[in-house]
Design a protein around this nucleic acid. Structure first.
Lengths: 341, 341
DNA sequence: ACGGGGAGTGCAAGCGTATGCTCATTACGG
DNA sequence: CCGTAATGAGCATACGCTTGCACTCCCCGT
């Protein structure tokens, strides 16, 4: 059934070794006549090399594993686009897995990808900031790197390895400054899941920006979401119920911000006149919602490109780290603070 | 460096065979004492099995290859979600690759996935309807299936294999009927890439629906896009320039429909009062744009689930085929035909 | 008490490929 | 004309694991 190199070699009347050397192309120490015979045989028998066996023999297999929280989320979707772009150019295969933010599953997948002996592993999306998780993950990662695997982390982690991070803190700081300039004094925040470093950085950057403007962010003005649209809707209603006097809302990502817009529309609150709204990430659809969303741009494709580039380049001994700048993008969902009703 | 089974066996003081049997768990013909020793050794040495070698020895490797046009596109993103859901439950790894609608690359990837001896291959997104492409692809696929691989196609192809198809024709027909009921007589269509079967089916279904209502769809009322938002914008301007008297626009997918809304807003044309707009697919953001988009729902997650389920179930001799119903979803972007200005 | 049987292990042969090393052939210089 | 250095091809081993088969005990039935 399966045509293998042996059959090709036999059909071409040469040894296995010669056939292998022809098909690998690298060292051209094979005479033209034999080379042609082998190629013809391979073609005729429709030979497709067994990558598994090659990997086993070579101890390297040209495939990179990527672990994301959820690739349906535009944020990761864009990162993957960057990763794929580089991978394609380098003729690398990419295995993508979704952890759906489940730590158990995340560890499980790292193990699985390790088992498949991927050349490199890219962990996209910040990790949980708990000692147990960090320790376990660090342990798994260590075992992997000890075997010669490379690891690149996107987002801040408590895990050693090459890193690509967006400047979440700085972007949130800028946004806070902007909000303050617009005259907002009471601001609601819809945060991401509590233990993510991304959430932490965006929250603290924002808080610091407000503090610099003499504004205090109260704990009860912060509600928690899970980065999904629906959680943005729910959180908005919660926010408006418990602190009705806010004049602006900062959602920790654009997807939730879209939920905010929906919720406000349901309540008949106009944006930006009665309420200023901003998100984070600048996903493609941010400029297509109404009103177009003010947000902080994270160069997602760039994050992916950088990560993959690192993943492909040989291990330098020290860990490398790249920070990608974020940038405030002002659109139509933000405006000067509305006078109290 | 790499700990392998041999080292584990040695460390536990048993034979390679015994160690293998313990770790595979299946046949429990190993005494408890030895079993414990092996497990302890594996733990201590941090043994991670080499999936490559296992696959080679077993001739099966629990990984499924998926080829999509562009996983940043919400359409494919949702399909992948369905695929992943099933894959996770079945403890299968998924390799995802983007062809970016490049036929060359698509063939290349099929070959690459074949080389990696994936158990099954899922081709998502309709194929090109050209003889050369179909023939070549059919050929590659045949070589793959001859080796024992399974293939599932999502969308109509000219290629033999198990198939999951959304009822594009029927959905478009329904939409046309609805448009006719609203009183629209002159309608513009923004089609997908010309040679895709999806494009063909959506166009012909729509045309048939109009014909059933006594309306003719002129060729110059159809412009071509590439399923991207920006192409929707461009196509809309083109459409309004060459046939300004249309009262409704049907974009072949929601992503382009969003572009239509943007273009209309630029021109100050209100929706649905001055222009009716509809898309296709019902991607998640369809209900979040303003106005919420009337569209035809394609059960994308379901497509993925069905495809993966087929991919995992053993080959029946005949090719299987599942059709998923589509459904008209009426939201705010459609209304009765505006009186001529 | 002896033979049969079953349970538990180990041996060794693959799975498909890459590659170091050896061997044969040819060309060339002296 | 012989010796030596290329040059090209093949043998055999390694990669890490699974699994059919053979072997060794030990227990039990007759």
């Amino acid at each position: 059934m399966g045509t293998n190199l042996a059959k090709v070699a036999a059909h071409a009347g040469v040894s296995l070794a010669t056939a292998s050397r022809v098909l690998n192309g690298g060292a051209r120490v094979v005479s033209e006549s034999l080379r042609a015979r082998v190629l013809a045989a391979a073609e005729e028998l429709q030979y497709v090399p067994n990558a598994q066996a090659q990997a086993l023999a070579r101890a390297s297999n040209a495939i990179v594993g990527v672990l994301v929280h959820d690739m349906s989320d535009p944020y990761f979707s864009e990162i993957l686009r960057g990763i794929q772009r580089v991978a394609t150019n380098a003729n690398r295969l990419v295995i993508t897995s979704n952890s759906y933010r489940d730590p158990e599953r995340e560890l499980e997948y790292v193990r699985l990808l390790h088992a498949h002996r991927v050349d490199a592993l890219i962990l996209a999306g910040s990790g949980l900031d708990t000692p147990e998780y960090s320790q376990q993950m660090a342990h798994h990662i260590a075992v992997f790197t000890n075997t010669g695997g490379r690891v690149v982390l996107i987002g801040r982690h408590q895990i050693p390895g090459d890193t690509v991070i967006p400047d979440n803190w700085g972007g949130a700081f800028q946004l806070a400054t902007y909000f303050a300039q617009l005259g907002h004094r009471r601001i609601g925040v819809i945060a991401g899941p509590p233990l993510l470093t991304t959430t932490h950085d965006r929250l603290e950057g924002f808080r610091s920006g407000l503090v610099a403007a003499g504004i205090v962010l109260h704990d009860h003005d912060v509600v928690v979401g899970d980065f999904s649209r629906d959680s943005g809707v729910v959180a908005t209603h919660q926010l408006l119920t418990q602190t009705p006097d806010i004049t602006a809302i900062f959602a920790h990502n654009d997807v939730m911000a879209v939920g905010v817009l929906v919720a406000l529309r349901q309540r008949g609150i106009t944006v930006p006149h009665q309420m200023t709204v901003a998100g984070f990430d600048d996903i493609p659809l941010a400029e297509d919602v109404t009103p177009a969303l003010t947000t902080v741009r994270v160069p997602m494709v760039e994050l992916g490109v950088q990560a993959m580039t690192m993943a492909l380049s040989p291990t330098t001994d020290g860990v490398r780290s790249v920070t990608c700048a974020t940038e405030l993008v002002i659109r139509d969902s933000s405006g000067t603070a509305a006078p109290r009703t």
